Structure formats: C-alpha cells, structure tokens
Amino acid sequence: MSTETTAFHHVIRLAHPADIPAIRAMQERSIWEIGGAFYKSNEIANLLALCGTMDDAVVGEGHYLVAEDRHGAILGSGGWSRSRPGYADATAADDAAPGVAIVRSVFVDPAATRCGIASAIMSRTERDALEHGVDTLQLTATLSGVALYEALGYRTEAAMELTFADQSRFKCVRMQKSLAKTQNRSAA
C-alpha cells in the first residue's frame, strides 16, 4: 500500500505503532507553526494539553497513513476511522452514522507544506474509505485546514468550538464530503 510521489520524493504508507512518537512530534510542530497564524498560543497550548493531536488507537485500526521522505522522516499524517475521536467529548458532535467515517488527524510538517502531501494523503484516505464501504467522510477542520478541505470538495456543515473542561475554546469547522458522488463523477 505504499505509493511513491516524485513531486517531493515521499512515500505514503500505513502508520505503525512504532511511528507514533514521530507522528506526534510532527503534528505538534505543525499545529504550532501552521496553526499559529489562526490561533493564539494559549489556544494551541490548551488543545495540546487537554486533547492532543491524535488518538493513538486510530493507528491500530489500519486506516491511518503517514508520508515519509527517503530518509524515513515523517512529513505528514492522516486517515479515517469509524471510532468517535477523543475531542468529540468537547463538542456537540454525534457519533458517525452507518456508511459515515471520520477523517482523523491530518497534519503536514511545516517544512513540507505546499508539496501536495496533505492532498495525497486525503486522496488515499478517500479511496481506502470507499473500498471499506464508507460513502461519506466527515471531519472537524482546524481553521488552518479549511481551505485545503474546501479545495478537495468538502463542504462546511457548521462552525464550532471545542470546549474543554477548563472552559477554554478552540474554533474549528465541521465539514463533510459524499464519496459516492465523487465515485459516480469519476465513473462517468
């Protein structure tokens, strides 16, 4: 399931539990540097302290990907899950309905932005979800990710805030895409 992409010389492959420390470090760099243009430092610090960047269990589900360079450095991550994300407790979000899955923890290393890594991960994520009977993907986008998801055909469902136990808030956007419509267009 690995794919070589020549634009930035990276390989996309399934994530393994041993990758989690490197994935998490890349994700934290990403939210601080890329997210820093959209969020205050205390908002990012609260997100990381109270929620983190990903649930480790998503790696074990077998639908979480990483992009790595030829030296094995993690450049990006993302995937999908039918499991409710840990941050969902901080929103009014419901569990996913049958045929619906949730895009989880898409991040790109700040040094590798604008190289097509997030788009490549999302393309693989969508194909894999379709192959496993998912016809709709939902996600909760950080403000820094909304433009990417809009460009990939996701539509805004609602502006929302993650509200944590200490009453701090983190603005985000709930988005959705019908994969069945995408598949029908490419078959025509």
Results as ranks from 00 to 15, higher is better:
55 D>Q: 05
73 A>E: 11
72 G>H: 04
72 G>C: 04
113 T>Y: 02
76 G>C: 05
69 D>P: 11
149 Y>N: 13
138 Q>P: 06
138 Q>H: 15
101 A>C: 05
101 A>G: 07
82 R>S: 13
146 V>S: 06
91 T>E: 07
137 L>K: 13
47 L>R: 09
56 D>V: 10
52 G>F: 01
85 P>A: 10
53 T>D: 03
108 V>F: 03
102 I>G: 02
48 L>D: 03
106 V>L: 14
149 Y>V: 08
128 D>R: 13
134 V>A: 07
75 L>W: 03
94 D>S: 15
57 A>P: 04
123 S>K: 13
76 G>Y: 00
109 D>A: 06
136 T>N: 10
67 A>T: 04
58 V>S: 06
61 E>A: 01
104 R>M: 10
73 A>K: 12
80 W>R: 10
83 S>C: 04
125 T>D: 00
45 A>D: 13
136 T>D: 10
79 G>S: 01
77 S>I: 01
152 L>Y: 03
73 A>V: 13
79 G>Q: 00
58 V>Y: 07
95 D>I: 15
86 G>P: 05
51 C>M: 11
89 D>T: 13
148 L>F: 05
97 A>Y: 11
124 R>W: 02
100 V>M: 10
110 P>Q: 12
53 T>R: 08
141 A>Q: 06
56 D>G: 07
68 E>I: 01
83 S>P: 01
